[in-house]
Amino acid sequence: MAKVGYMEIAAELRKQMQNGELNPGDKIPSLNEIQKRYGVTVTTANRAFKQLKAEGLTYAKPGVGTVVAARPHTAVTGAARLDRLNSTGSPFVAEETATDHISMIRGTTDNDIIEQLLIEPYEEIVIRRRTFRRNDVPYALGLSFIHKRALRDVPEIAQTGPLEPFWQKTYTERTGKEITRSPERRTARLAADYELEALEVPTPANAAVPVLVLHTTFYDEDGPIELWEDVYTPGFWQESAE
């Protein structure tokens, strides 16, 4: 069995915080539990604890132990949300919801969408949009750009409203084709007016507002099938699932 280092232990606990298995205020496993779980020394376990504390992810609560710290300006990424859906059956962390589900079929001239989905300019795609909120405050606009070929097997993607189960699961069940994803790509750009409106960001007309944007591309055996774009409210930083 390969030796486990303190950074690997910290990464596993960090991932549990990111996907909602451990929420703010939850007690994390004790040093003794970490030693037994990973077969490490108390020194290694303690270094993992110190790493998480240094990152501001945990703190010592008298009479309780080490607990997860509150992070009010932290947003969960689409990949972390998908991992949580697969592991727990729910895509949301504590106090998180999704509203304003919209679906449409449109031609696109967006170069990034065209390149990622390997389509032609003006080719039609399915666009699904929703606003992610925490404590009813919007923090991210989620956009899904789906290759039109997916409509053959999952016509439901063109319907407005949340899809249950997740459409990729339905697609795999109906076609037998597994879907994989690329690493997340992070960038920044100026927000469009409709994005600021959806995120309820009050700004003067034509104001230049920079936002963090995250992209994830999904593939089946026939090529790219979906591009995710998460646009974050200014002031939020994001967490990856990886």
Results as ranks from 00 to 15, higher is better:
E173Y: 03
R185M: 11
E178Y: 05
N206T: 05
G176C: 08
A191S: 12
A158P: 06
P162M: 07
G176F: 10
N206F: 15
D193G: 02
L227D: 08
A188I: 02
L196F: 12
T187Q: 12
V211W: 11
P165K: 07
R174Y: 09
L190N: 09
E178I: 10
V211I: 15
I179F: 07
V211E: 11
P204G: 09
P162V: 04
A207V: 01
G161I: 05
L227C: 10
R174L: 15
I179N: 04
Q168D: 00
E173T: 05
F218W: 11
N206E: 12
T233S: 12
T217V: 15
E229T: 08
V213M: 11
L214S: 11
P162H: 07
D230I: 00
T187C: 09
D193A: 13
Y194P: 01
E197D: 15
T203C: 06
S182R: 10
A188V: 07
S240P: 03
P224V: 04
A208G: 01
E164Y: 12
Y194K: 05
F218S: 11
G176V: 04
L212V: 10
G235Y: 00
L227A: 08
E226T: 05
P202H: 08
A191Y: 12
Y194S: 09
Y171N: 09
I225T: 03
G161Y: 05
W237E: 07
P162S: 11
L199R: 00
V201Q: 12
D230A: 05
T180Q: 03
E184F: 01
Y219Q: 06
Y171A: 08
A192Q: 13
E184M: 14
D222I: 01
P210I: 08
G235E: 01
L212P: 02
T187P: 03
T172E: 15
H215Y: 15
A192M: 12
T233M: 11
V231H: 06
L196H: 06
W167S: 04
V231A: 05
D230G: 08
Y219N: 11
N206L: 15
E200D: 13
F236Y: 15
L163A: 08
P204W: 03
Y171D: 00
E195M: 00
T187H: 09
W167A: 03
V231W: 09
R174Q: 14
R185N: 09
P234T: 02
T203P: 01
V231N: 04
H215F: 15
T233P: 00
T180I: 10
T216L: 04
G223V: 06
P224C: 07
P162G: 05
R189F: 02
P234D: 00
Y171G: 05
Y232K: 01
E239W: 09
E195Y: 07
P162A: 12
R174F: 07
Y171L: 12
F236P: 00
D230L: 12
I225Q: 01
T175S: 06
T160F: 00
E197Q: 15
A241I: 04
G223K: 00
V211D: 07
G235I: 04
T170F: 03
D220F: 05
P165G: 10
E184P: 06
A241D: 13
D222M: 06
Q159E: 15
P165Q: 09
E178N: 13
D193K: 13
E184T: 15
G176R: 06
E229M: 13
W228F: 11
T175R: 08
A198T: 00
